[in-house]
Design a protein around this nucleic acid. Structure first.
Length: 362
DNA sequence: GCGGAGATGGACC
DNA sequence: CTAACGGGTCCATCTCCGC
């Protein structure tokens, strides 16, 4: 097995950097890119803050009203996803050209398999990473942070090691030392809940976690997740860098006012169903399952779904199914108060590409 | 026991 | 004055049910 060389590229504070790009007067000022829910003037959350805003204690995920209180100087900018998508697509094209295999993850990051290009040399990887960063800066005026490692896990952690505009190379021999300096929460895929359970077992460092028998981890977290945690603690990850087909599309919205009325939700569903139908159409997929998602003001979430007789693609099929599901749900739980709700289509029938592939799978 | 369907929850950006 | 809180996606797991 050849030694893989994987890079992870993260565009620095992407939404905010993209806004600074088209409005240079914002440079040097604290800005927060916001998702306004429209419920009240400042309800919603911060999607990204630039570094000046972070110095003031403003962070992604924070309620806008809370961020605003941190500083009078803070400039609030509504998120413009269409614009960020355009910028992102151009950056991704540049990055793709520097890779053997490419995988975009979200709007602002990507993995590059550069094993062949580097002939497994981590020295040569530095040059490629520098070239890619320089080209993105030159052509799109955006800074990125890059991490290089023997797999996706280490590359991802390396890219967050030095930000912004960082470049961190972790060669195979350095993995163990690199991990020792990290916290368990820094392991990608291990979230707060997992960290908490481990803390109860007095496991608070990565070396400690690496020594913990897999059997114990599997007992606490289940077979697959236990094994996954064990491998991450050792810095192991054999997942491939490859473009993944989307498995589902969803649209969610916050209501102006809470409701328990299935009719009201059905009315609001039109816009969401329209977008989902368009998206299915654009991508040439047919869905078999339609789901509704309801979130109460106490943040309790419920989903209900239905699988159709045959694959569908039309807005009317989404709406009719959603209507049925809303009706069923509220006859069960008439008192449920909805704050946010959404629709999802999933369970796509095979795409043309997969069909091609499966012929040769034998 | 197995696969599909459905529900839930964790995780990440 | 206080409390305040988005949207999109993936994945694992569990349960139920028909075979």
């Amino acid at each position: 097995m050849t030694q893989r060389v994987i890079a992870h590229v993260d565009i620095d504070y992407f939404y905010a950097q993209a806004e600074e790009l088209r409005k240079p007067e914002l440079k040097g000022k604290p800005i927060a890119i916001c998702m306004f829910s429209g419920r009240t003037e400042f309800s919603g959350a911060v999607a990204t803050a630039n570094y000046r805003a972070r110095e003031l204690g403003v962070h992604a995920g924070m309620p806008i009203a809370f961020a605003k209180k941190k500083s009078k100087e803070l400039i609030l900018i509504p998120a413009d996803r269409a614009y960020y998508s355009e910028v992102s697509a151009r950056v991704m094209d540049i990055l793709r050209a520097h890779s053997d295999e490419f995988e975009q993850v979200g709007i602002d990051e990507a993995y590059l398999d550069i094993t062949k290009k580097t002939q497994s040399s981590f020295v040569s990887a530095r040059k490629i990473a520098q070239d890619a960063k320089a080209q993105v800066l030159e052509e799109e005026k955006l800074t990125c942070s890059v991490g290089v490692g023997p797999n996706k896990l280490i590359a991802k952690m390396a890219s967050s090691f030095k930000k912004p505009a960082g470049l961190t190379i972790v060669a195979p021999a350095e993995v163990k030392d690199f991990l020792r300096a990290m916290r368990i929460a820094d392991l990608h895929g291990i979230g707060p809940k997992t960290v908490e359970v481990l803390a109860e077992k007095k496991i608070t460092t990565i070396p400690k976690l690496a020594q913990t028998p897999v059997a114990n981890l599997q007992e606490w977290f289940g077979e697959n997740k236990g094994l996954m945690i064990h491998e991450k603690a050792l810095g192991e990850d054999d997942s491939a860098v490859e473009e993944k087909e989307k498995q589902q599309y969803s649209r969610i919205m916050t209501l102006k006012e809470d409701t328990s009325s299935p009719e009201k939700l059905f009315e609001e569903s039109r816009a969401l169903a329209d977008e989902l139908a368009k998206k299915s159409n654009e991508n040439g997929v047919h869905f078999k399952t339609v789901s509704i998602m309801l979130i109460s003001s106490k943040l309790e979430a419920v989903t209900r779904s239905k699988t159709l007789e045959r694959p569908a693609q039309k807005e009317e099929e989404i709406l009719a199914t959603a209507k049925e599901l809303f009706g069923q749900f509220f006859s069960e739980k008439p008192g449920f108060v909805v704050r946010r709700f959404g629709l999802r289509v999933s369970n796509f029938s095979q795409s043309a590409r997969e069909k091609q592939k499966s012929i040769f799978d034998f």
